[in-house]
């Protein structure tokens, strides 16, 4: 299925793009793998930490819902939009 992955902030510099179209399966693992094929293997580290958990310092929105809401039940559908950004916490 086709997923739109949008990157923000320094992720755009790091991976040289604002948006990529991915062909992937239903799972987050599959999305990370498909993105890494296009953006480089380091991209996986933008989603998962060294323990394989979703990173706490990235916000990942799937059609506007925080991934942490729906972690256990992610089943991507064709046309889904995924946004990844580091939150800004200063004032």
């Amino acid at each position: 299925m086709r997923i739109t992955l949008k990157l923000f902030a320094f992720l755009r510099d790091e991976y040289g793009t604002k948006e990529v179209q991915l062909e992937c399966g239903e799972t987050l693992e599959s999305l990370a793998e498909a993105a890494s094929k296009i953006l480089g293997k380091d991209f996986r580290r933008e989603i998962f930490d060294e323990k394989g958990e979703v990173r706490k310092d990235r916000i990942i929105l799937i059609n506007g819902r925080n991934l942490k809401d729906i972690k256990g039940e992610i089943r991507f559908k064709d046309g889904d939009a995924v946004a990844v950004f580091p939150p800004a916490g200063g004032g």
Binding site: K56, D57, I59, N66, K68, D69, P87, A88, G89, G90
Partner: peptide, 15 residues
Amino acid sequence: RCIFKEMEEKSLQPV
């Protein structure tokens, strides 16, 4: 909380 969930504090952000 819907948008950001649990956030880690970061000390002294550059601004």
